[in-house]
Amino acid sequence: MVSIDVWNASVDFPIFDAKSRSLKKLALGKVGGKIGSEGRVPIIEALHDISLSLKDGARVGLVGHNGAGKSTLLRLLAGIYEPTRGQSRIVGKVAPVFDLGVGMDPEISGYENIMIRGLFLGMSRKQMEKRVDDISEFTELGDYLQMPLRTYSTGMRVRLALGVVTSIDPEILLLDEGIGAVDAAFMAKARDRLKDLVKRSGLLVFANHSDETLLDFCDTAIWMDEGRVKMHGGLREVLTEYKGFDPFDRMSTEQLERLGYSSSTVLSGNGGE
């Protein structure tokens, strides 16, 4: 059973400047009595008192201004940061797609990068070898997979990363912004695959600024503000609060139709679908 539970979790980053990070300061600091070594290190409270319970099938959009703690929250949910205070429990195989430049070696081929990413996400070599054809077909990179990654455009890297995570059946999929770099045609393809993935007993948390993308993938949303969960609920309500207007109001009929809403339900209805 896939789930993420977080209880009153806080994430505080100690900011060591060059001086407080040295042993000398720590040793000398002891002489003066109770000048705590930790107490003198400035702390950035990136997340404050977060409580969440995400279950199987949850498709959560993550919104908030820059620096509101979206990426840090995603890393908390991935288990990369363990909360400084409070608790977290993650059950399930996590596949994060965060910064696309990292975890990929620019000098080695796309194929090798697929391999390494897969291994990092808990697959074996054999399992990955079986999936390579599938990934190469999905990403449409073809012979480019033999080229070193530095020759790839941003969009091609996104394709590669998405290809890997969607091929390995992760139970928890965490996507940060930046996925928007792919073109519309590929996005449509990825959308089907992601949706399919979420349907197969998964959990998706997706940080994104585009209403359209969020409405497409998610049904609930979390609004982060200054390291706290400001609002958590249905996607449409959260977006309405966050933006100050109903996201459907400013969409063309075309967009609505593509998203699978008919304009009449939107106009008459409240609350998403």
């Binding site: 969440l52 319970s53 959560v60 958590h232």
Partner: peptide
Amino acid sequence: MQAPSTLDSPEAPPAVKSR
């Protein structure tokens, strides 16, 4: 209104300690 995963405050903290 659908809310498959909301703030239904989780029960007791788990026994797993980080340290």
